[in-house]
Design a protein around this nucleic acid. Sequence first.
DNA 1: CTCAGACATCATTCC
DNA 2: GATGTCTGAG
Length: 713
Amino acid sequence: MPADLLAGLNPEQLRAVTWPAKSALVLAGAGSGKTRVLTTRIAWLLSTGQASPASILAVTFTNKAAREMQTRLSAMLPVNTRQMWIGTFHGLCNRLLRVHYRDAGLPQTFQIMDSGEQMSAVKRLIKQLELSDEKFPPKNVVGFINSNKEAGYRADKVQAIDPYTRKLAEIFAAYDAQCQREGVVDFAELLLRAYELLSRNEALASHYRERFRHVLVDEFQDTNRLQYAWLKLLAGRDNALFAVGDDDQSIYAFRGAEVGNMKSLLADYGVEAPVRLEQNYRSAGNILAAANALIEQNDGRLGKNLWTDAGEGEPIRLYEAFSDNEEAEFVCDEVRALSRDGWDLSDLAVLYRSNAQSRALEHALVNAGIAYRIYGGLRFFERQEIKHALAYLRLVSSPDDDNALLRVINVPARKIGARSVEQLQAASREQGITLWQAACAGGAGRGAVAGFVMLIESLRAERERLNLAEMISLIIDRSGLRAMYEADRKDGEERLANLDELVNAATGFVADEPGMEVVEFLTAASLEAGEHQAEAGEDALQLMTVHAAKGLEFGGVFVTGLEEGLFPHENSLSDRKGLQEERRLMYVAITRARRRLYLSCAQSRMLHGQSRFPIRSRFVDELPPALIHTLSAPKPAPAARQAAWLNETPAWAKAKPAAAGGFSIGQSVSHAKFGLGVVVNAEGGGDEVRVQVNFAEHGLKWLDLRYAKLSAC
DNA sequence: CTCAGACATCATTCC
DNA sequence: GATGTCTGAG
C-alpha cells in the first residue's frame, strides 16, 4: 500500500479510515476532513486488498462531489474507478433502471422529469380529471405525491382516512398511470422504482449484495426514508455500510431528509458509537466559536464540539445597512477593498437565504464592475430556450411524451392555440391514446397540427443519419426556434448564445451505450441541471444560496439578509423544527468561512414588490457578542433615516402620509410596555387603524390604536 | 380561432 | 419578477 496514504491523518480520521470491514457511522463536523476520510477509506480498502474496485458503491449528494471523489481517488491510487459505482442516489438509481428497464417495467428510453415538468404534468392531470385547482392546488398535489414516494408509499399504500386524502390518493394513482403511459419518471420515482426493483426481485438484490461489499454514503444526514431503505436493501446483513454525516448540517428536511436515519443506523447495524471527527481544519477560532455557540441552541443533537488549533483569527464583522441596496453596496465596497489587499475574488462568497436576494447584489456588482458568478438560480438546463430545444429532442426520441409535445406544439407560434390543443386532448382521452397519436390521427393532411406532425416526422427521419449535436442544431433551425429568437430584440441574443452552447455541450457528449445518445444526454440534462455552468475558471466573486454552499469553503464569506422573516424564513418561524433547521442552515453558512466572516442585515428590504422593515435575525443575537465587531454604518441622523424610509414607502403610505391615526411611517414613538420604537407600517382607516412598530427591545409589533397607548416622541 | 398585451396572483431552500 | 388568465383585435 502507498506508504503515505495514511500520513497526516489525525487519530480519529485514522480510526475511521481503517475501521474494520463492517458498518460504521462517522459524525463529521464541518471542515473536519470528511471527504478526505471517505476517499482515503476507499483507497485503504483497495490497497490493503480488502476490497476490489467492483465491490465499492459510493453515494454522494451532488454529481460534483462524485466527480471530485473519483478524481481524488485516481490521484491516490493507480486504480480503475470505472469499475466502482460512484454517484448520486438519483444517478445510481437511473443506472440500475437503465440496465434492468424490463424488470422495472419501464421503456428502454424512459425520460426523467424535473420538478417543473412534474408540476405541469400534474396541472394537466387535474384539468383532465375535471377537478378544481382551488381545491387541489397543483403545488400541494405534487408535494403529496413526492412526500409519499419519498416515504416509500404508492397510491394504494397511502394512509387515507378522510375523503380528501382519498381523493389525493386517487390523483396520485392517476398521475402514476399517466407517467407510465408517457414513459417518464420524476425524481422520487427514480428512487422508488429502483427500490421496488430490488425488493421484488430477490435474485437481482442478492446479485448486487454479493457484488457491493462496501457501501459508502456521504452526507448521510440528508437521506430520506426511501434512500435509507434502498441502502439497507443493498447492504443486507453482511455488507459494510459506512456512512458519513453531520446532523448539525441537515438542511433538507423540506425534501424528506430524516436526520433520524443516523440514530437508526446505529441501532439497525449494531454500531456502538459513532466515530467523531471534531478537529476543524478550515475556520479560524472565532468563526468556529460562533458556530458552536449558535448550534448549541438546538436540541436533540448527537452532540459534538468542533475545535481548532489555529488561532482565534479576526473578529466577525457585523454590518447593519439601511436598505437591501445599501447592504449590497457595502458588500461591493468590502469586496473591492479585499481585492486590493490581494484576495482572489473566487475565494470570496456572498451567501443568501433565497435566490430572489441575488438581484440587489447583482445590480450593485454590475455598477461596481466586479466580476461575479451565480450558482444555482436559473440553471442552464432550466432556461426556457434550452427546455424548448430539449422538448423537441424528446419528441424526436419518444413522440408519446405528452409533456414535451405540449411544451412546443405552439412554440414558436404556429396557429395551434388552446382550442386545438383541447381537441387533441379530448381525442386522446376518449380513445386512450397519447397526444402525438391523436395529432397523427386527427390532423392528417391538413391544418397547422398536420404541419407540426410533419415537422417532427421530418426530424425523426434524420435520426439515423445525424449525430446528437447535428440533430440539436437541425432542431433549432427547422423548428423555427432560431428565427423566433432572432426576431426577439430584448433577450433573443442571449438565448441564441445559450442554444449554441447547448449544441457545444452535445458535441462533446459520448454515450456509454451506442444508439442511446439522445436518452443519455437528456438524462444528464435532468440530473445535472445546475452543475454545468459552475466550471469556467475566471476569477469571480461567488454568489449562491446557503444550501448551494454546503460542502464548499471560502477564505471570506458574506452572510447577507440576516433578518427575521428572511433568515430564519417566515415559513419556518412558527414551528420549532423549522426554526431549528434554519439554525442549522445558519451554522452551515458560518462554517463556510476560513478567515473572514461578514454578517449583514438591512432595516428595509424590497420583498415581493413591497417594502418591508424587518428586524435583525435572532441568529445574530445568539452569537457571543465578544466575537463580533460591529462596523459602523455611515449613520445619518434620525431625520435623514426617516427620509430614506419614506422614499421606499409603498404608494398607499405616500397617499395618506399622516393617515395612521396621527402617526406616520418612520416616526419615533414610545409605548408603555414595549418602550421606544419606530412606526414602519400601517393599515386600516377611520377609527380602526393598526400600525406596525419596530421596537428597539421587543421587535416588530402590530398595535391597534384603539387600544394601544402609543405616543409620539 | 389565434395572438398579443393587460391584469392578477403568488412568491424558500433542490436532486 | 415570473407565471397564469382574461380580453379585445384581427
